[in-house]
Design a protein around this nucleic acid. Structure first.
Lengths: 160, 160
DNA sequence: TATTGTTATACTCTATAACTATA
DNA sequence: TATAGTTATAGAGTATAACAATA
């Protein structure tokens, strides 16, 4: 039942997608250069650093990664790099508790200034305070809506 | 010389990145399901369809792909799928002219309604007309700035 | 000498399915 | 029976470097 988007909407949509693509690309480069990590890994480390320091795999996955195996893979890489450790979870024997190490926190700290620099140079230099406030409100609303949306692992049209 | 971002900026930044990630992910799924193409391929086809129908590889790459070989690869896939053809360019013997086929236009047409539907459901349902206008202005400004920024292929800190 | 594009190659990310173990 | 996580594997995307041809 969806007709075409209004030209304004279409323009906003493409500008949004392209801007974030470009930003994302620059951020990936910066993170790789300054800390040898990807944006996904940065998100995982940041999430751990901002919590009590340890989270279960499932908690860690939410919103960052779209498949269990993908997270296992990334957690394995982070562990191999010494940035996190994995151990049993006392509350639930099935779960794995991921803990950020001092080295992990150090990487987050090392990477942050450059990360902020990129965001500032590419994004915030072009936005007024009002813009930022408006953008923040909109995107928070949008994000919450998206997170709520379908069961998060929407069925990908399987046969059978 | 960059200090930490203000909390508002940080919040806006992360909400923006996560929203677009989620949106991008949904769009990829929709495009794959409805047309068997990726978002990058959609962008290339859309760009061709909205131009005269044929563009040189370099023109086609701008803003969509970050390496020559990546575009060659994608163009090869599109050609194999019968969605574009590649031929010599009369103006410049070095260049390759990429032309969208009827099948290519058909795929764009086939995929559009679902694409719009996703954008509407995930994004525009949460935005007022004013929001869209503001977002469009901001992101257009940001995109133009990003495109202008460094020489587009910023030197990736090589050794030697 | 600079630019356009391709090739070969290698690496990363992601996803599916099958599996183990706990709840 | 459902959930948490891992493994194996396969597929797609992307980038680097070396190369050929033309400007």
């Amino acid at each position: 039942m969806a007709d075409a988007l209004k030209p304004e909407q279409l323009g906003a949509y493409f500008a949004l997608m392209e801007s974030v693509n470009l930003l994302h690309h620059s951020v990936e480069q910066q993170l790789q250069a300054d800390g040898g990590i990807s944006y996904v890994q940065f998100q995982l480390l940041a999430r751990l650093a901002h919590s009590t320091g340890e989270l279960t795999m499932t908690d860690l996955a939410d919103g960052v990664v779209y498949s269990r195996s993908g997270l296992t893979h990334q957690a394995g890489l982070l562990e191999k790099a010494g940035l996190v450790t994995r151990g049993p979870c006392p509350d639930d024997q099935r779960a794995t508790l991921v803990t950020i190490t001092d080295a992990g926190r150090a990487v987050v700290g090392k990477v942050m200034p450059g990360h902020v620099e990129v965001a500032r140079r590419m994004l915030f230099s072009q936005l007024s305070e009002k813009d930022v406030a408006a953008l923040g409100k909109m995107m928070t609303r949008v994000r919450d809506h998206m997170r709520a949306q379908p069961p998060r692992s929407a069925a990908p049209r399987k046969r059978v």
